[in-house]
Design a protein around this nucleic acid. Structure first.
Lengths: 201, 201
DNA sequence: ACTATATCTAAACGATCGTTCAGAAACAAC
DNA sequence: GTTGTTTCTGAACGATCGTTTAGATATAGT
């Protein structure tokens, strides 16, 4: 039995998420990772194999934790309009959001790499699917409960809300004027509320 | 009189726009610029001074040409709902848009650099202001002509449409499923049309 | 034809890139 | 205390980074 590790892999991945979220893949050097993770260079490569592999572990972690925390409520059984509204309100609170200055790691990655896939695993396409399916699920639930106007197409609206939150992520990332972010969220919420079926007279 | 230049500065900047649009700033090497612009390394630095300076020239050019072409119609005197609609229809045509796989250079830059300004010139913040002011101008015009419902706040809606097109840019950049892009644009257009004042009975 | 000057060509600079290596240190088992 | 093994330390590898340089070439003016 040899020397024990002085780090925890899960902790390292968590820290890597934050570093890649701030700087992107190309803008993050191995040196930055060594400094930010607090491990030596040898252990970084022994544990993860390559910078790319660490990046993919970070994307996986982000999906499991951050996307799960934010979009999981929409995917839950019984989720509906209120869950969508809570999400929009959360991202519209520009000054307080943890995404301020940082945005969403998967959104940032989508833009950084464009149509080139940073890994064979299709993280970005899965991300778009997850977002639109989450909105679709919540709105379909609402429709099934009679909470949506009959004319509403949950599939169409899902695409719309996906674009809305991606736009919020961009503005949060680059610290657009908070008033623009808040307006965008309020109108999206107004649009959402307008989808509700009117209660019978 | 010495040897004449075998390049045109404006042509080089135009090519640089395309390269930075595809690969971002960090993802574009000097070698890629030399190859893509078709000049020698000496001339690249003689003409522009640095990679950063070329990047800023590209951002300026993009603003003057691409943003002008796309958002200029909203800024024009007399612009209204129809101009906003045309813009949304244009970006919603995912398969045909020149932005497919590339998005918007300023949006990409906003995400790549986050709150760090890539130059002292504030290109990204000016970009957000330009977008939201363009939407505001067009919607204010419509309001002034009595074409908007009285309850509509052009300032709020401008923030919303800014987020919408940024979201479309992200999805275009990463080649999200065209159905999601098209749905997002259609619903945004539906929302826009719902802002129209009803004609008197 | 010669000269002065500007640009091109090819190479190189110092620094950093992502990754690997050799030896030292720390540890558990014996 | 010794041994075998794993991790850490510090350095270095080959490649590429952004930028500069020296000499060659092309050009206009004389």
């Amino acid at each position: 039995m040899g020397r024990r590790k002085s780090y925890d892999r899960d902790v390292l991945v968590g820290k890597a998420v934050e570093i890649f979220r701030d700087h992107g893949f190309a803008g993050t050097s191995a040196e930055m990772l060594v400094a930010g993770l607090g491990v030596n260079r040898y252990s970084l490569y022994a544990e993860f194999g390559s910078k790319q592999a660490l990046f993919e572990a970070a994307l996986q972690r982000y999906d499991e934790e951050v996307l799960e925390r934010n979009f999981g409520p929409l995917e839950a059984p019984g989720a509906g309009i209120d869950e969508v509204r809570a999400l929009l309100e959360f991202f519209g609170s520009a000054r307080e959001s943890p995404a301020s200055g940082r945005g969403c790691l998967l959104c940032n990655t989508a833009v950084e790499f464009g149509p080139d896939d940073p890994s064979g695993a299709g993280f970005v396409q899965q991300y778009f699917e997850r977002l639109s399916e989450a909105f679709y699920a919540a709105l379909s639930n609402a429709g099934g409960k009679g909470e949506l106007r009959r004319s509403v197409d949950p599939r169409e609206e899902a695409g719309f809300f996906t674009a809305s939150v991606l736009g919020l992520f961009v503005m949060l990332r680059a610290k657009a004027p908070p008033t623009v972010i808040e307006s965008a969220a309020r109108v999206a919420i107004g649009h959402l509320e307008a989808l509700r079926a009117k209660p019978p007279a």
